[in-house]
Nucleic acid binder design. Structure first.
Lengths: 149, 149
DNA sequence: AAAGATTGACCCGTCAATCTTG
DNA sequence: CAAGATTGACGGGTCAATCTTT
């Protein structure tokens, strides 16, 4: 029996089940306690990690989990809420920046510890540190670029 | 610096990224090669693992990754396609069975190796067996019931 | 023509409300 | 009224087409 195949299928199944179970509760808790949906948080996180708190849409699309088209819409929502502002690229008129406003940064910084705490509660509570490392390192390897052939 | 917190956040982030990256390619490949969308496959898998190839909707809802309401719709689609049939529960008129037809079982059995192969290609290719175990065991622990308080 | 970004149409999935039977 | 299941309305997400600028 090809046990490696079964192991791979079980591991993938675990990803599906954990994602399906954890994501909704995480999102609900984050909305309740901070008013930020998960998609907003994702964008704010990448912006606040960027120098000057601004990125082009393409850069956001590469860094965040969302697709580029979803990013456009989330940035619209964030702009309506006053948490980011859209600015033009100085030299390339096609490109558009999203940049964090002061309020956006404040909201993010207030939300960050709540988010981290929610991850602990809903995802990591029952795991040993070694188990967490195993999950992180294994999943990182899935997306690591293949060694050149 | 609370490195355990960062570790947990990184591990959860890895779950999000892997899910977002792998699910679409897996679904596309499965559709192309077998004509079955992932949701169909999920239901067929649980049915074919059940004795007599039949389960009530509630049982399906507990076992599969999808929600109960989604299950209703997927079973409708599967019934239209002739892969399952809806039958009544002999003693409880509220309950409804979904049961695998011969064609449904054949389609599933043809699809299963393709699915397993796709998991290998899109998810497990770069992972050592130990890494796969780390992912599976760690994620299983997330959903394990808490020890009674 | 190509790159950056946005928009429209559409699918997947859930929640809340509803229907039916016990 | 409670349990099983289905349906309607809606949000979140992506793809393909489009618009603008280079």
């Amino acid at each position: 029996m090809p046990s490696r195949r079964k192991l791979a299928a079980d591991a993938w199944g675990a990803v599906l089940r954990v994602h399906a179970a954890v994501l909704p509760s995480l999102d609900r808790e984050l909305r309740m306690k901070t008013g930020l949906p998960l998609g907003w948080y994702d964008v704010l996180l990448e912006l606040s990690a960027a120098p000057d708190g601004q990125l082009t849409m393409s850069e956001l699309g590469q860094r965040a989990v969302l697709s580029r088209s979803r990013i456009s819409r989330v940035v619209d929502e964030l702009a309506d809420a006053g948490l980011v502002s859209r600015t033009r690229h100085p030299t390339d008129g096609r490109s558009a920046f999203a940049s964090l406003t002061a309020e956006g940064r404040a909201r993010f910084e207030a939300a960050a510890p709540v988010y981290v705490e929610a991850i602990q509660t809903h995802f990591a509570a029952e795991l040993t540190t070694d188990q967490l490392r195993g999950v992180r390192d294994g999943l990182d390897a899935v997306l690591a670029p293949r060694p050149a052939p």
